[in-house]
Design a protein around this nucleic acid. Structure first.
Lengths: 190, 190
DNA sequence: AAATGCTATTGATGTAGGTTAAGAAAAAAG
DNA sequence: CTTTTTTCTTAACCTACATCAATAGCATTT
């Protein structure tokens, strides 16, 4: 919870009273490895802040194959935004890759925080902008780079993830088969 | 300019006074086919609303090849958000595919509008959310669908674009070679 | 109505990366 | 420490799509 509040106060100023608004409106949940924060088809009632652990957000296609959309370490936010905003069933599944602690905020909690913490709207907008720009860059890299180039960019950008997360999850995130990633790594090792 | 204001008032309520704030702070520019709204390397000083015509937003890779990020018809917004927010040089180039009319808003204009039109912050947030979710879906389709499936989804989602825009632009948007798209279409015609 | 670019099509050929299958290595569970 | 599960690697083969090259069809311009 401290980590959660510290993270927010890196972007916006928070008074002691503000901090208590967060403490009074957010809950901390724990997830064991392989447990779900959200399953496809359910409504995403909560937005979550990862304060400990690591999760993957993915879709499942018609063949039952997973496609990883996000890998979230400490400090990242997780949710299915579409489902969260509209109340429609989620397309994403969010699953713990390690034992996790998640700070959880439902819609009423967020409304309350938006009302009572003046800067939070701005924090929220900046987070959204950053996520959107990162996703733009990802589309671009998929349009313009080879699998090897994307992997090299990934390990440069997210070295911590490479340490902690199975290669097959990273391969899926990059849109390549795990066997191909293994070959790419072998090739690069030279 | 009416179209611009009408579009905004579909999402948020606008008084006559609000409308005048837009009129007094935004400009209309015209672009001829093949002219640039923004060129890679320049700072993106303006956000633009397409009130007439059609443009493509693209990056140019190290081989000089174009990769289309967005195809914007009437009612769409165009900018390089990263450059616009940070003042850094743009990675995107935005070029008219037809003669265009663009309603243009610089940073001061937006600040003023945000201050004077209470609902605009919300409009802006909703626009950002929708763009972000659309880009999420695009990443997903690139991770999980074949070229043919992506083309079929595209013509279903954007039939107007298919009518108006050269196939090679659509091919680039979908991340496939124009020759391949031609073959996919031939195949589908049966 | 020619001439000049663009854009789309087609065919031949190449290749990055997928698929299948099997075994090795590493982690987790008992 | 042994067993079981998960992950990673390797090799043989395959396929979706790219690339190259030539031609033809349109639109613009003159």
């Amino acid at each position: 919870m401290e980590f959660f509040i510290d993270t927010i106060s890196k972007t916006i100023q928070l008074t002691q009273a503000d901090k208590e608004v967060f403490i009074n409106n957010c809950l901390v949940t724990k997830l064991k490895k392989r447990q779900f924060f959200l399953q496809e088809g359910n409504v995403c009632r909560y937005a979550g802040f990862v304060s400990k652990g690591c999760l993957k957000t993915y879709t499942i296609d018609k063949n039952g194959d997973e496609h990883v959309f996000q890998i979230a370490l400490e400090g990242w936010w997780i949710s299915d935004m579409y489902s969260h905003l509209t109340g429609e069933p989620a397309n994403f599944t969010i699953e713990a890759l390690e034992d996790c602690e998640i700070v959880v905020m439902d819609i009423e909690a967020r409304e309350k925080i938006l009302k009572e913490v003046p800067g939070y709207e701005r924090f929220h907008r900046i987070l959204l902008e950053n996520n959107y720009m990162a996703t733009q860059r990802r589309v671009n890299s998929m349009l313009s780079s080879s699998a090897e180039e994307r992997y090299l960019a990934f390990i440069k950008k997210y070295p911590q993830i490479v340490q902690r997360v199975p290669q097959l999850v990273i391969a899926s995130y990059l849109g390549i088969a795990p066997e191909s990633l293994s070959r790419i790594r072998k090739q690069l090792a030279k």
